[in-house]
């Protein structure tokens, strides 16, 4: 079944975004990958097109961003009645306990630390891609858009 929902990557670091996209593709994810360089950009996108297109099947959210940080974005999304079902995976460079707790309190669905070692990084993102292929997601606003690509 062809899944149409995009995967949103919210990360100010172009390199990280690139590497994530690269590894997701390599893991076989075929969904549209939308990249946002700031939290505000992502929220603007949600505002402009709340229901026109398919809802994101997953949001990969970086925490440490200039301007609007990841936690703020997380709170806005999870406070919204319509969008709180969007699965949000926080990807952070740190593994600070306080940060982890704050994110889960705000409603994040998964917290992952970006490994510095590229092999681990690749492994993590590809595992995430593999998870996406077998996971179930909320219906309705969030139309799952995963393509099982082998």
């Amino acid at each position: 079944m062809k899944k149409t929902g995009p995967i949103c990557i919210v990360d100010d670091d172009d390199g990280h975004a690139y590497l994530i996209e690269l590894n997701l593709r390599q893991s076989g994810v075929t969904n549209e990958l939308l990249r946002f360089a700031s939290g505000q950009e992502f929220l603007d996108y949600l505002e402009e097109d709340p229901s026109g297109g398919d809802a994101p099947v997953m949001v990969l959210l970086d925490l440490n961003m200039p301007g609007m940080g990841g936690l703020a974005v997380l709170q806005v999304v999870k406070d919204s009645r319509i969008r709180r079902t969007y699965p949000i995976v926080v990807l952070s460079t740190s593994a600070d306990t306080d940060e982890i707790n704050a994110c889960y309190r705000a409603g994040c669905n998964l917290f992952l630390t970006k490994p510095v070692q590229y092999a681990e990084f690749t492994d993590l993102v590809q595992r995430l891609g593999a998870l996406l292929k077998v996971a179930h997601f909320p219906s309705g606003a969030a139309t799952t858009g995963l393509a099982a690509a082998g």
Binding site: D13, G15, H16, L19, L22, L63, N64, S92, T93, S94, A95, D96, K114, P115, V116, Q117, Y118, A119, F121, T122
Partner: peptide, 22 residues
């Protein structure tokens, strides 16, 4: 400083290591 180390110094490292791997 710890946060800066964990975020701001590690982030470029990820790129350095990632792209050198690439």
């Amino acid at each position: 400083l710890a946060a800066i180390i964990s975020h701001d110094l590690r982030a470029p490292l990820i790129n350095i290591l990632g792209f050198s791997d690439e």
